[in-house]
């Protein structure tokens, strides 16, 4: 469902050019759970941003759902992101001023979903993450684990084909981290592809495949559970 071929990305200042990604190629299948690992600064987050169409590669080809999006306009990228991708971040990134319900329904609002559809889907998503009883709360009234469950609800509420998770358990204790991993695996079980950046070997081991990055290059890919 997602394929990237020979993508590269570099950042330049007036004096220095830093290569964040070099000649990276990989493919994500439908319903596949992929973990991306590597040391800090190896390009994991840059890769995730490019996979999520939040950033553009300098070169190479990206294909999402069979559509070449390498040269797509910003408007088309927004449309694809809206239709097919959900995000989970390490620091949750809930909008502080909005309630749990309002945070979860954000993606639906931008898709133009009607009020009743939004209500049904938000309730269903919050049910799935066990947060319906906190629907009217603000993020600051929730624990870190609860906030990340809300963030997962926000990612799955539109039934995306792909969820991109950037160290989703990085700010959580073990118990909450496990709960979040369970939720991601439930999403995979429903046919959603998940790409997760993580430093945790234990959590990476729960994925179908593990990709190792180093200095902006894919140095290994390991299929797990085979």
């Amino acid at each position: 469902m997602l394929r990237v071929e020979n993508i590269s990305k570099s950042y330049a200042t007036s004096d220095v050019r830093t290569h964040a990604l070099s000649d990276v190629s990989l493919a994500i299948g439908e319903g596949e759970f992929v973990a991306i690992m590597g040391p800090s600064g190896c390009g994991k987050s840059t890769l995730l941003n490019i996979l999520g169409l939040l950033d553009r590669a300098d070169g190479g080809r990206i294909e999402l759902l069979g559509e070449d999006v390498s040269g797509a306009s910003e408007r088309d990228l927004t449309r694809l992101r809206r239709a097919a991708i959900g995000f989970v971040f390490q620091s949750f990134n809930l909008v502080d001023e909005l309630t749990v319900t309002q945070n979860v329904e954000l993606g639906l609002l931008y898709r133009g979903a009607g009020a009743s559809e939004r209500r049904e889907r938000v309730e269903a998503a919050l049910d799935r993450v066990g947060m319906r009883h906190r629907a009217r709360h603000l993020p600051k009234q929730l624990s870190g684990g609860q906030q990340q469950r809300v963030a997962i609800a926000r990612a799955i509420v539109s039934d995306p084909q792909l969820i991109l998770a950037d160290e989703p358990t990085g700010n959580l204790d073990t118990v909450n981290g496990e709960a979040v991993m369970d939720l991601l695996q439930q999403a995979v079980a429903r046919g959603t592809s998940v790409v997760m950046v993580t430093h945790s070997l234990a959590q990476a081991d729960r994925a179908d495949r593990k990709i190792q990055l180093l200095d902006g290059r894919v140095v290994s890919q390991t299929r797990l559970g085979a």
């Binding site: 999520g52 939040l54 992101r81 995000f87 954000l106 993606g107």
Partner: peptide, 11 residues
Amino acid sequence: EVAVRKACGAG
């Protein structure tokens, strides 16, 4: 917030 909204599909 802007990034999250964009990630959620905001144009």
